[in-house]
């Protein structure tokens, strides 16, 4: 990120200088900074509203219900975690919160899940298979309610802010499937290599 940031600014200034339009830079920088703060004000409203709703959902136990629904699937994805181990519960809570678009509520569960998984690890400095599976599913982002996104689109003046729900669902399903399939392939490949 540091590289990209300085690349944008430095190359911009160099190109402007080479084209003899150096005065453009000052103007662009000042206007952009002002616009950013204007956008941020809208964002404060959206994010506050959404996290308020998210907290109500969390407190009422809605996330627990979802995690009970998807539990059977996850026993199959994490064969190395013993049945009833707290790690599975944390993973479920983390992914359920992510699914509902409550990224903030998800992180504490995610870190707790890692601690629980670490307890099952016999090589404390090396990642386990379950950890890799968990992170692959987590980073491929299983979102079914991209709420912040819809609110953002609305504030930017979209005629139909929710129209992207379908395309997001399609893309996120593809990426999660790719992560799961990739994980299974790599895992079986690793096992075979250890045998021979």
């Amino acid at each position: 990120m540091n590289f990209i940031f300085s690349f944008f600014i430095l190359s911009g200034i160099i190109v402007a200088a080479a084209n003899g339009r150096i005065d453009v830079i000052t103007n662009a920088a000042m206007t952009a900074a002002g616009n950013a703060v204007q956008r941020a004000i809208t964002l404060i409203g959206i994010v506050s509203l959404w996290l308020g709703i998210a907290r109500v959902a969390e407190e009422s136990g809605l996330i627990d219900i979802l995690s009970r629904l998807i539990a059977p699937l996850f026993r199959w994805l994490f064969p190395s975690i013993p049945k009833g181990h707290p790690a599975l519960g944390c993973i479920l809570m983390n992914l359920s919160a992510n699914m509902l678009g409550f990224g903030n509520a998800a992180t504490p569960f995610g870190l707790k899940a890692m601690q629980e998984l670490q307890r099952l690890n016999d090589k404390p400095d090396t990642a386990t298979e379950a950890m890799c599976t968990f992170l692959a599913i987590n980073t491929s982002s299983v979102t079914i309610v991209p709420a912040t996104l819809i609110a953002l689109r609305a504030s930017a003046g979209s005629k139909n802010p929710s129209e992207i729900v379908g395309s997001v669902l399609f893309a996120t399903t593809c990426s999660t499937l790719a992560a799961i399939v990739g994980d299974i392939v790599i895992r079986s490949f690793c096992r075979r290599r250890r045998k021979f």
């Binding site: 940031f5 944008f8 600014i9 190359s11 911009g12 200034i13 160099i14 190109v15 402007a16 084209n19 339009r21 453009v24 830079i25 103007n27 662009a28 920088a29 206007t31 952009a32 900074a33 616009n35 950013a36 703060v37 956008r39 941020a40 964002l43």
Partner: peptide
């Protein structure tokens, strides 16, 4: 973050880079 990104992209675009 917003200010940083907006300024970087603004410079990058307006300069013709």
């Amino acid at each position: 973050y917003l200010i940083g990104i907006y300024v970087a992209i603004g410079i990058f675009r307006e300069s013709g880079a």
